[in-house]
Amino acid sequence: MGRLAETFFNAEVIATYLPALLSGFRVTLELAAAVVTLGILLGLALAMLRAFRFRLLNGLIVAFVDVFRTLPQLVVMVFAYFGLPYAGITISAFAAAVLGLALVLAAFAEEAFWAAITAIPRGQWEAARSTGLSFGQALASVVMPQAVRIAIPLLTNRTIAITKGTALASVISVPEILDKAQSAMSISANASPLIVGAGLYLAIFGPFVVVSRWLERRYGWII
């Protein structure tokens, strides 16, 4: 039992590496914030654009969504980081991680918002247009408020799953929690940094999960 504590909860090791782990914590938060904001906004924009039904644009949007819903997040990230330089685009590991995850989240978010938009009864469009609102106004003031509410339960699980992909950024050496924890672990030959890292992830994503349970309960019954 004592050995267990020494291996996994070594106070001395933890004290030494805590600053590094906390800086990793900040990076993880930045990654998560960037990914969620960019991904959901992009997905929302794509879904609203899709509502205009321009043939060529639709084809592009659907292709985008299919590709990024199918490819594993890590593959997209790795491709962005190791592949883009060959196309003349040098990109930092942080940016590659954000790009990879945000594109994937955008694809899922677009699908969720689009499904919600198409679930809004035609009568809502007709009523809005019949009072002289333009297509864009009807979309923004009548359809989207209802659609967003429908989309939330569909989105929450997906958003959490993809945001947790920030840990994958350690694979391309972004200095987030797992990356810091792993190097601390190998230098100190002790597993405590990893346990602290796990605890830090729990601190971030535990609330995520609680909030999502609340959101699902609140908005799941709107329809």
Binding site: P121, G123, Q124, E126, A127, A128, R129, S130, T131, G132, L133, S134, V142, P145, Q146, R149
Partner: peptide, 20 residues
């Protein structure tokens, strides 16, 4: 069309009120 529709009011069988 949008300007023209200001002059024409329509009432639907299903009401189509905005629930939100």
């Amino acid at each position: 069309l949008n300007r023209a529709r200001k002059d024409i009011g329509m009432v639907f069988q299903a009401f189509n009120l905005y629930p939100h």
